[in-house]
Computed example of a mutant assay.
Amino acid sequence: MVTLPSQPGVRTQLGELIEMRHRVREVQIFSTPGRRSPLIGLHHSKLRGRGVDFDQVRVYQAGDDVRTIDWRVTARTQEPHTKLFHEERERPIFIMVEQSHRLFFGSGLVFKSVLAAQAAALIGWAALEHNDRVGGLVFGDNEHHEIKPRRSKQSLLQLLNRLVRANQALHSEAQSDRDAFGQALRRAREVLRPGSLVIVLCDERALTDSSEQQLSLLARHTDLVLLPLSDPLDHALPAAGLLNFTERGAQLELDTHDSDLRQAYRSLAEAREARWQRLAQKLGVPLLPLTTQDELIEQLRGYLHALRPRKPQ
């Protein structure tokens, strides 16, 4: 691999992704003995026992999943009891991260491709510290690279190295496979065992009928966390006058002073966001959209704080 000159925010380097291990303590992604991550438990209930271990039995409380009622204890005590579960240790964590030409763009702090790489590295180091097996799949315009989950630093470094290679090779004129995301999801379904936790980092625009179907099928046997990536310019056009766009010889001119055009553009973005929200609700999985506008750690910390159950007054 030929390493390109350092371009902070535009391209990532292996050293930068390795340094992300020092930021793991800044945000609690996975549970620790004294603290429970709010991501855990949001999406295990529909297939109890998948990715979780039995912990204890306690008296049933309002809001508990009726499917977890322990009928033997209930019959013996004549009072409803429910089973409690805790997160399984050393579960396979599979990080799917996109590095395609549509991510090679950014008007915020970093390019979307760099944000995806940083998030993948942070989650990978957090999983390794949590004693889980880490692997993943880096997919781009015309190829993908798969790393089998292992509980070793070498496996994570192999994933990060592949991620950097793909990132360094990005350019705006790449020929893309329109169904690259769907193909990557099909491959994940083939290799992942039930109970795996799948982290999906992809462009917000990657969700199509095909990929939505593949995500629904994948969610039947694994647990998902969805992190679609976007840039402020994906959601709103500035009133900047005439803008010229060129791609592989084709040219397009837009008059961004046209308020109808800007509204139509904004409506498309809102429809994409709504589609992700509907899918996450249907599958019962966490949705954590990331933007290049804000710092990664702050975004994740905000999401996890919002998800954390409130203590009763």
Results as ranks from 00 to 15, higher is better:
162 R>Y: 00
29 I>V: 12
84 L>V: 15
124 G>I: 01
202 C>K: 12
220 R>L: 11
106 G>S: 11
221 H>L: 03
235 H>G: 05
66 V>Q: 12
75 A>T: 11
196 S>A: 15
51 G>D: 02
192 L>P: 02
57 V>Q: 13
77 T>R: 15
272 R>H: 11
207 L>S: 09
209 D>F: 09
20 M>R: 09
133 R>H: 05
117 A>F: 04
78 Q>R: 14
312 P>V: 03
213 Q>A: 13
159 L>M: 13
272 R>G: 00
239 A>G: 04
199 I>L: 14
63 G>M: 05
244 N>V: 10
3 T>Y: 04
2 V>P: 06
149 P>M: 09
120 A>V: 03
30 F>Q: 07
164 V>H: 10
290 L>W: 06
53 D>A: 11
86 H>M: 06
31 S>Y: 00
218 L>N: 08
302 G>H: 12
140 G>N: 12
254 L>N: 05
112 K>G: 01
312 P>R: 04
87 E>V: 07
64 D>A: 10
130 H>V: 00
204 E>R: 15
242 L>N: 11
215 L>R: 08
57 V>E: 13
75 A>F: 02
57 V>W: 05
125 W>K: 05
166 A>H: 15
144 H>K: 10
153 K>C: 04
294 D>S: 08
64 D>T: 07
71 W>R: 13
6 S>V: 09
26 E>Y: 01
229 L>F: 04
139 F>A: 15
162 R>V: 00
156 L>N: 13
147 I>Y: 04
194 P>C: 09
182 G>E: 13
197 L>A: 15
231 D>S: 14
67 R>K: 11
180 A>T: 03
256 T>P: 06
84 L>F: 01
2 V>N: 09
142 N>R: 14
271 A>M: 07
268 L>C: 05
46 K>S: 14
200 V>Q: 12
87 E>Q: 09
198 V>C: 15
76 R>T: 00
254 L>C: 03
108 G>I: 05
108 G>K: 12
253 E>R: 13
219 A>F: 01
184 A>W: 00
252 L>K: 11
105 F>R: 09
177 D>L: 07
6 S>W: 01
281 Q>W: 02
255 D>N: 15
181 F>W: 07
58 R>L: 00
171 H>G: 10
33 P>D: 10
311 K>N: 12
112 K>N: 02
95 I>R: 03
92 P>D: 14
18 I>W: 03
60 Y>C: 10
188 A>C: 13
198 V>M: 07
239 A>P: 03
50 R>E: 00
217 L>P: 06
307 L>W: 12
293 Q>W: 01
253 E>Q: 15
